[in-house]
């Protein structure tokens, strides 16, 4: 039992480290949703401020 729990904790630590380094789940929902939905061919709606 102890060995199994240690393996689970080791995997959880590795997973949490990976997720932390790669920022998994750290994106702002608004931006992530906008990126997923794509531009539909739009070009810079406030692009005039370049």
């Amino acid at each position: 039992m102890t060995r199994i729990v240690f393996v689970i904790f080791a995997l959880a630590t590795a997973g949490a480290t990976y997720a932390g380094v790669y920022g998994i789940g750290g994106e702002d929902k608004q931006i992530a949703k906008s990126i997923r939905s794509g531009s539909s061919g739009r070009v810079g709606y406030i692009g005039g401020v370049k």
Binding site: I31, S34, I35, S39, G41, R42, V43, G44, Y45, I46, G47
Partner: peptide, 13 residues
């Protein structure tokens, strides 16, 4: 607004 500088395509708003 985030745009791809090479294509001027809007990536996110």
């Amino acid at each position: 607004e985030l745009t791809n500088e090479d294509t001027d395509e809007t990536i996110a708003e």
